[in-house]
């Protein structure tokens, strides 16, 4: 994730939402770690934050993040498939809110969270990118996503940023939500 975000320009036009499974008490550390690696502005999400270009919105520990058109809402509903934040929940809401303008990106990870949500993004006309499992530290999550969404574009980690920049130019006129996951 550091590598991906570190390769995106400061003025990357698409707001980015990052959903990363993490411990209840890992506040601040992750944001700091990512901020040190990227020119984008990294911030921990607070309820009703407005999605901004050039910004990485980071899901807080222990809350689901839902995308409500221009802003982000938090929820403490039950964990979904043992995860809170749940990537599926955020992806699904991105698909519903942005339709064809949403891009879901699944990166390395140790369970199958994200696959269902990615399928939902595609169902709503959005794009699916998955890190090539061969380039993933833990390939379970990208593998699960590819299995459920065979039409997803499989991209090696090193080329993901470039691909996103290309897509952002294509989609210059539409505001898109994008979620990634380390």
């Amino acid at each position: 994730m550091k590598e991906l975000l570190g390769s995106l320009p400061k003025k990357f036009p698409i707001p980015i939402v990052v959903v990363q499974h993490r411990g209840k008490d890992s506040e601040k550390l992750l944001a700091q770690l990512l901020q040190d690696a990227t020119d984008l502005k990294v911030c921990d999400i607070e309820d009703k934050d407005v999605l901004c270009a050039g910004t990485v919105h980071l899901a807080p520990a222990n809350y689901h993040v839902l995308i409500d058109s221009a802003y982000l809402s938090l929820s403490v509903e039950e964990p979904v498939r043992f995860s809170r934040p749940s990537i599926d929940v955020t992806f699904a809401s991105a698909g519903d809110a942005y339709g064809s303008a949403a891009i879901g990106v699944v990166l390395t990870g140790a369970n199958d969270d994200g696959a269902r949500g990615l399928a939902h993004i595609v169902k709503r006309g959005g794009r699916a990118l998955v890190q090539d499992p061969k380039t993933a530290e833990i390939p379970i999550m990208p593998k699960a996503a590819i299995e459920l969404v065979p039409t997803a574009e499989v991209v090696p980690l090193k080329k993901l940023a470039r691909r996103l920049i290309e897509l952002s130019k294509e989609d210059a006129k539409v505001k898109a939500g994008r979620r990634t996951r380390v």
Partner: peptide
């Protein structure tokens, strides 16, 4: 109520 969340429920 916040739309995305109520919709989901």
């Amino acid at each position: 109520y916040a739309y995305a969340s109520i919709r989901r429920r």
